[in-house]
């Protein structure tokens, strides 16, 4: 099996060779039916005996709530918002996605960095 790759330099202290699980990303606009399909996938995988975990935007323990709260206020500027989402993503990547993959889990990602890239490009990055 080929070693898993990162888009950039990866994370400090993470050896790609130790990442054994599978990462499945579900992208698509609002209302496209992502959540429903993810539910189906998770049920199916777990019934077959594959340990599964679901991640998604604004769900980090570190700043998920703060980010959701800040979105309501509508006061954040483009760069701030982008970095806020990056923080939220990095927390889940380092503390949920990578450890789960190391433990051999299937990780289902309800939106991934492609959504963040798409939004930031629309906002002028």
């Amino acid at each position: 099996m080929k070693p898993k790759r990162f888009y950039g330099k990866g994370l400090p202290g993470v050896d790609p060779a130790l990442i054994k699980g599978t990462l499945i990303v579900i992208e698509g606009s609002d209302g496209a039916g992502r959540s429903t399909q993810i539910d189906f996938l998770q049920n199916w995988l777990e019934r077959k005996g594959y340990p599964t975990v679901v991640v998604g935007l604004k769900r980090s323990e570190l700043v998920g709530e703060a980010l959701a709260e800040a979105m309501k206020g509508n006061t954040l500027t483009a760069t701030t918002l982008k970095l806020f989402y990056a923080t939220d993503f990095a927390d889940q990547l380092e503390r949920v996605i990578i450890p789960s993959l190391k433990a051999g889990f299937v990780v289902l990602a309800d939106r991934y960095i492609y959504t963040l890239m798409a939004r930031d490009i629309v906002r002028g990055s």
Binding site: T77, T79, A86, T87
Partner: peptide
């Protein structure tokens, strides 16, 4: 408290904070 911060998230959260101050 919960030992959540890593070098990457520590850095990103401060960058977020700085961006807010910078842009506003």
């Amino acid at each position: 408290k919960k030992k959540l911060l890593t070098p990457t998230t520590f850095s990103l959260i401060h960058a977020t904070d700085f961006a807010d101050r910078y842009e506003r």
